[in-house]
Design a protein around this nucleic acid. Structure first.
Lengths: 139, 139
DNA sequence: TATATATCCTATAACTTTAGTAGAAAAAGC
DNA sequence: GCTTTTTCTACTAAAGTTATAGGATATATA
């Protein structure tokens, strides 16, 4: 039940971008330095976030990344699911047809409940929340 | 954020045992057949559950496994943690010292919240709940 | 006491995922 | 044209997952 480093790095990178929201594009090199994440790896982490529309990019000199949506509108749930795929702890919670026992299996119900709890928790945390907390912790 | 098959198999095996609670020892061979889990793999899954004291065993002919505690007292959280280790989605939620950023990192707080949500959800589901649901679903 | 049965324990192997490196192409600003 | 930065693909090493296999040990019963 571990979160991948990709999901953790993506979350930290987007909080970093949220703190610069409305300003000039942010170079990955800078995020890489601030967050202690390899630039080359960070590039790969950002890729799906751009495809999903969470960030926009500008190439070349003076280029970089900017948040494509308001920090208030982006939740951790979206970020994690964009990078990792479904947050569901078991395949059958997303698609009961994958398991022939799903309709008579009491643990199936429990895993669905677990998934719902995770979705509720991550779905209520926005980048704006995290950016605000960051400012509190680092003032 | 996937649950391992070991955790899922362990849960199903213990629900199976809960349904026979108070009766004779149950052979792994029977659980294996009912649950469609390889006998040899199931042996490995059960091993930590015995070490943690969730099941007792009797060797030899007429032997098998029995639940060592009342189904009402055993939660999914305990089962998953026994088999997988900590349920925490990130190492730093269990031990902040593992990450030097922990005390100034807003995502750290979010992951701790996520862990708490998971612990709350799995901690409230007992084997008795699951056995009861099983009987409802299969009557 | 011999036999059948079941658990116990360790080793190993195939497969998948994770985490990261590398390099070159493409675009943009100066 | 040069520098900077993103873009895209390929590759690799290490770790984790999901099993299978075989023999040792213990127990009930004939």
């Amino acid at each position: 039940m571990k979160l991948s480093t990709k999901a953790r790095y993506a979350s930290r990178a987007l909080v970093d971008l949220a703190l610069q929201y409305g300003k000039d594009p942010v170079k990955l090199k800078d995020i890489s330095a601030r967050q202690d994440i390899s630039l080359k790896y960070l590039e790969q982490v950002m890729y799906p976030l751009r495809v999903c529309g969470y960030v926009k990019t500008q190439k070349g000199s003076k280029g970089g990344y900017i948040l494509a949506r308001s920090p208030k509108e982006v939740t951790l749930l979206e970020i994690v699911e964009c990078v990792e795929g479904s947050i569901s702890p078991v395949e059958c919670a997303d698609n009961p047809k994958l398991c022939k026992r799903a309709d008579c299996c009491s643990t199936h119900l429990a895993w669905v409940g677990l998934k719902d709890a995770i979705v509720r928790e991550l779905g209520k945390i926005t980048l704006a929340d995290l950016a605000g907390k960051h400012l509190l912790l680092n003032k």
